[in-house]
């Protein structure tokens, strides 16, 4: 398997610690092995690789997750031809949803080009006979690791997020039993104490990625290691978000038009990452940027969403909702997002 560290771009604000990636880097099996073994066709494998029973089970989990927004639903996570932590939950969810009419996109930390993304895409193409794309607006199902695209998702699209750690409460208590009880009773005071102590220490809430958010006013959710920049995109969106964890065998969902509210104090509001720079490739100032070090050893800022960056490089004025009939659609920072632009919000703070 290719060394994953190559594709890691370090963000100034995201704690990009992926233990699960490091652990599994030693595992010899991978999608690429599988693909090379089996050649072009997938003779002997069921449609979309998983057997029908497994897919039905996953879909059942998905339906349950949709009906209880933010609640973690167990599912029988299968062994996959790649180590857990490589997105086995995401792949199972994607493969259970895909049909031949779908167009599939895979993003790995903003990039369609990582080996992992390419392999997952190829697995779906080969076994489920789907079209694949790198264009966010073309895709019907998008599997992603640690990012939500910059272009607004629509009610025709499903975003499948890979999840390494399912429970937001694990930050404050390692006992899953105790945390399950807390969720059952909506008892989140321990999380609030952690936020209080965070502000005591830093005078603001210092959580970079995996920012905990209340879903539908009921369940506290770990939105997976997306940056804060992406967190508000979950709120009142048109699209369906599915969160799938293979190792922990849990699925949860944010259905369209669900309230998703990042935890914060009235006087210490939720803040997103800010960049003083613009993208050195496309000039964007309204996208999530990460530091990239070039061959010349110089570190520059670039859009993390590579496919949108490419479009912007050609059409600098392209808006994030360019593909929609409406204008000014709320979609995270630098759009008219209600969570970020209310009077206590972080937009101008």
């Amino acid at each position: 398997m290719t060394d994953q560290t190559q594709m890691h771009e370090t963000s100034p604000t995201t704690e990009a610690t992926d233990n699960e990636q490091q652990e599994s880097a030693t595992t010899p099996t991978g999608v690429s092995d599988l693909l090379s073994e089996s050649g072009a066709g997938m003779a002997g494998y069921n449609y979309a690789y998983l057997d029908e029973h497994t897919k039905r089970e996953v879909r059942r989990g998905v339906l349950k997750a949709i009906s209880l927004p933010g609640h973690q639903v167990p599912f029988a996570s299968r062994e996959m031809p790649l180590a857990r932590g490589w997105g086995t939950g995401g792949i199972q969810a994607s493969l259970s949803l895909l049909g031949p009419a779908d167009t599939f996109k895979v993003i790995d930390q903003g990039s369609d080009e990582s080996v992992n993304a390419a392999n997952i895409r190829r697995l779906a193409k080969t076994t489920a006979d789907v079209e694949t794309t790198t264009d966010t607006t073309e895709a019907s199902v998008i599997q992603t690791r640690h990012r939500i695209p910059e272009e607004v998702l629509t009610d025709e699209q499903i975003l499948v997020l890979q999840v390494p750690t399912t429970d937001a409460l694990r930050r404050v208590d390692g006992s899953d039993d105790a945390n399950r009880r807390r969720h059952a009773h909506k008892n989140y005071s321990k999380m609030w104490v952690a936020l209080y102590e965070n502000v005591v220490k830093w005078d603001e809430i210092q959580i970079s990625a995996r920012y905990p958010a209340m879903v539908n006013g009921r369940y506290l959710m770990d939105p997976s290691p997306i940056p804060r920049w992406d967190t508000t995109k979950l709120n009142d969106a048109d699209s369906l978000f599915l969160f799938a964890a293979g190792r922990e065998a849990r699925i949860y969902a944010v259905p369209p038009h669900t309230d998703v509210e990042p935890l914060a104090f009235e006087d210490r509001s939720f803040q997103v990452e800010r960049f003083d720079e613009s993208c050195h490739r496309c000039g964007s100032t309204d996208t999530y940027l990460t530091e990239v070090t070039g061959d010349d050893g110089v570190t520059r800022y670039a859009c993390n969403d590579a496919s949108f960056c490419e479009k912007r490089a050609e059409h600098p004025d392209l808006s994030k909702d360019h593909h929609l009939d409406e204008d000014d659609v709320a979609w995270g920072p630098e759009t008219p997002d209600p969570i970020l632009s209310d009077e206590t919000g972080g937009e101008d703070a």
Binding site: N187, S189, K190, W192, V193, Y196, E197, V199, V200, F265, E266, D267, R268
Partner: peptide, 20 residues
């Protein structure tokens, strides 16, 4: 938790949301 955090927990559990 800090001593202050323990006391704050009572307030937070009762719905206080203003840090200051």
């Amino acid at each position: 938790f800090t001593g202050g955090g323990n006391v704050a927990e009572s307030l937070l559990a009762a719905g206080w949301r203003n840090f200051d």
